[in-house]
């Protein structure tokens, strides 16, 4: 037993020691941010960009708990990174978070994923128009399944209602705690429609269990037989992106060094392979363009959260 343990231990120790980056995933193991952080860990190490990378999970409240800890711990420390994304923007608003993204240093946007609006294959609803018609008739009769209240899925449901001239405070949104649970409710026909990242639905769509009514992005996705919401006549576009941020009070040189590392990571073959395996789209963006994009998203999110009634 002891020999084995030692063997296993030495096997794992093959990873060199000195810590280069500690990446905080402000979510429980298994979620999108956790997977992003662990994929970064693997790629940074395998490509020799960093010698050792640790992942820390600080779950809860759309990432705001992790962010609050991060702001304190990572001050002037160029070895600490945190993964975040669109959901965090919304969560900062709905939770009245004492910290926000302006208190940290955005490094790079990494990936993006379109959301999909789906119905079970057996549903009478064939198109987005059918769904909108039902929504206009009686918003309460359309039960939407998705992730937690105030998240990207909920925001998209609100935006769709708004674009269809339905009062967004009247949507009947049912929150589920994990992607799997929401998907089960949709497949089982417990709800009218579901919203989530397209990759979560992909295999069900291929198998003909679900029908995609529309995708949320600006462009249609190759191989998916569904229009964008714009093409379906609703003026809505939303992408659930993920990014990496560093701590407050870093020097310009430090920020440049981290950015260079992230760029090396994002352009590597193993990163591209990992993205393909997970169905994520490369949305690498840094510098001023990133900041501009971020500011726009924050303003738009604040507006819709007020309209849905989640933020006063």
């Amino acid at each position: 037993m002891r020999i084995l343990l030692t063997a296993a231990f030495i096997g794992a120790m093959a990873v060199p020691a000195a810590a280069d980056y500690t990446i905080m995933a402000p979510a429980a193991p298994g979620g999108g941010w956790d997977q992003t952080a662990r994929t970064m860990q693997a790629v940074l190490r395998d490509e020799g960009i960093a010698e050792s990378v640790q992942v820390v999970n600080v779950p809860g409240a759309g990432g705001t708990i992790g962010l609050a800890q991060f702001v304190n711990q990572a001050r002037s420390n160029p070895e600490q990174l945190i993964v975040g994304g669109y959901v965090m923007v919304g969560a900062i608003e709905t939770n009245n978070s004492p910290v926000n993204l302006e208190m940290v240093t955005p490094i790079a946007r990494l990936t993006g994923e379109q959301l999909a609006v789906v119905v079970p294959a057996a549903s009478e609803i064939e198109t987005m128009d059918n769904l909108v018609a039902r929504l206009r008739e009686n918003p309460g009769a359309v039960a939407w399944a998705g992730g937690s209240a105030g998240g990207a899925d909920h925001i998209l449901a609100g935006l769709i209602a708004q674009a269809a001239d339905v009062d967004p405070t009247l949507i009947n949104y049912i929150a589920f705690s994990g992607g799997g649970e929401a998907l089960a409710a949709i497949l089982g026909g417990q709800v009218t429609a579901g919203i989530s990242g397209y990759s979560e639905f992909a295999s069900q769509v291929e198998a003909g269990e679900l029908r995609v009514l529309a995708l949320s992005g600006e462009e249609p996705v190759e191989g998916v037989d569904a229009p964008t919401l714009r093409d379906a006549g609703l003026d809505v576009a939303l992408e659930n992106w993920r990014m990496v941020l560093a701590g407050p009070d870093l020097t310009e040189e430090q920020v440049a060094a981290i950015t260079a590392d992230m760029e090396a990571m994002a352009t590597s073959d193993s990163w591209q392979e990992a993205l393909a395996a997970r169905g994520w789209v490369d949305r690498f963006l840094t510098g001023e363009e990133l900041e501009q994009q971020l500011a726009e998203d924050i303003a738009a999110t604040q507006a819709i959260l007020r309209d849905i009634g989640l933020v006063q």
Binding site: F9, A12, M13, V15, A17, A19, T22, Q54, V55, V56
Partner: peptide, 13 residues
């Protein structure tokens, strides 16, 4: 050593 270095559990150093 076992958990932080060997098994990558994050424990403060």
């Amino acid at each position: 050593i076992l958990f932080a270095r060997g098994l990558q559990l994050s424990l403060p150093a």
